[in-house]
């Protein structure tokens, strides 16, 4: 770890920040999106969220106790993993599946590598991809917004993939989150509201979210239609998990590059991969796979974008 730290010349000033504090602030920043999800999709979504957080914390505690390490469930990282996993699940996800995903996120996504700070991949996305590969039936059944019962509806991106047209849905509906989708990804307003504070405090820098969303927009604008430069980029920016992923999952400190230049490369890579999967891939949505692939590329990005020692 030591050689990854960049120590600038003295004098140094302690900022009073800590991992725990930042984690809980990001957690709070995520709350509006979840609240919006519960309003849009009903109380069932709340159970999925609570269940996911509970199992993430329980798995973390159990594994740390079993391997005789310090139990650190109060540092907020496991809680965020649980919360983000729930945000990536459909509101009607069976609770046993939520528990399995939560356990997998913590156990395989994080603890096998040695815990917080050691994992290569974003744990919540590892859990989501695990569930996606294991039980696609439950992972692709979405409830209809504001109906509060068992009515299902496809996500706009799934409709686009199947029929070539996204159905008649306005940008406004997409912006407010009135569409089928995962719990935390639907309401763009709430996500942006939540992201404002950590962005302002620079807990998350603008580099990854901005380049990520912009690249996806530009790429879908160029290649999204039959002719060049005619794609519905606004639609692609507002649907799927793009905003959630760009602000809260691609910016994970552990699995994204350290330098500004590296983060820009990371964001552009995520954007291109997301657009490629959406336009030509087998899945309707590619945010989670794009971020995971760029997570894998993070060490090599870090190597080539290392800061130059001053004067050399």
């Amino acid at each position: 770890m030591k050689d990854r730290l960049i120590v600038s010349a003295s004098p140094h000033l302690h900022k009073g920040e800590s991992t725990t504090r930042i984690m809980w602030i990001v957690f709070l920043a995520l709350v509006p999106a979840g609240a919006a999800g519960v309003v849009i999709f009903g109380v069932r979504a709340l159970w999925v969220i609570l269940w996911s957080i509970f199992f993430a914390l329980a798995s973390e505690a159990a594994i740390q106790a079993a391997t005789k390490r310090k139990v650190t469930i109060l540092d907020g990282s496991a809680a965020i993993t649980g919360l983000l996993l729930a945000y990536n699940l459909p509101p009607g996800a069976p609770l046993w599946m939520v528990a399995a995903g939560s356990f997998f996120s913590i156990a395989i996504g994080k603890q096998v590598f040695g815990g917080l700070g050691q994992n290569i991949f974003n744990p919540a996305l590892v859990g989501r991809v695990f569930l996606m590969a294991s039980w696609p039936k439950y992972m692709t059944t979405f409830s209809k917004p504001l109906s509060y019962d068992a009515v299902t509806s496809a996500t706009p991106l799934a409709l686009l993939k199947e029929s070539g047209v996204p159905g008649n849905i306005s940008y406004q509906d997409l912006f407010w989150g009135l569409r089928g989708g995962c719990i935390g990804e639907a309401c763009i307003v709430a996500l942006l509201l939540g992201a404002a504070f950590p962005l302002f405090k620079k807990y998350i820098s603008w580099h990854i979210p901005f380049t990520y969303i912009a690249t996806t927009g530009v790429f879908t604008y160029i290649f999204g239609a039959k002719t060049f430069f005619g794609g519905d980029w606004m639609f692609h920016v507002l649907t799927g998990g793009l905003v959630l992923g760009a602000f809260f999952m691609a910016t994970d400190y552990v699995t994204s590059p350290l330098t500004r230049r590296g983060q820009i490369v990371f964001g552009i890579g995520c954007g291109i991969l997301t657009a490629v999967i959406r336009l030509w891939g087998g899945y309707p949505e590619g945010v989670s796979y794009a971020i995971l692939m760029m997570n894998a590329a993070t060490p090599i990005i870090d190597r080539f974008t290392r800061n130059r020692v001053y004067g050399s």
Binding site: A100, I108, F130, A133, S134, W135, P136
Partner: peptide, 15 residues
């Protein structure tokens, strides 16, 4: 019983 399908895929073998 809903089997954990990923285990019978190649990634499951590695896991």
């Amino acid at each position: 019983f809903d089997p954990v399908r990923v285990i019978s895929m190649p990634s499951g073998a590695l896991l």
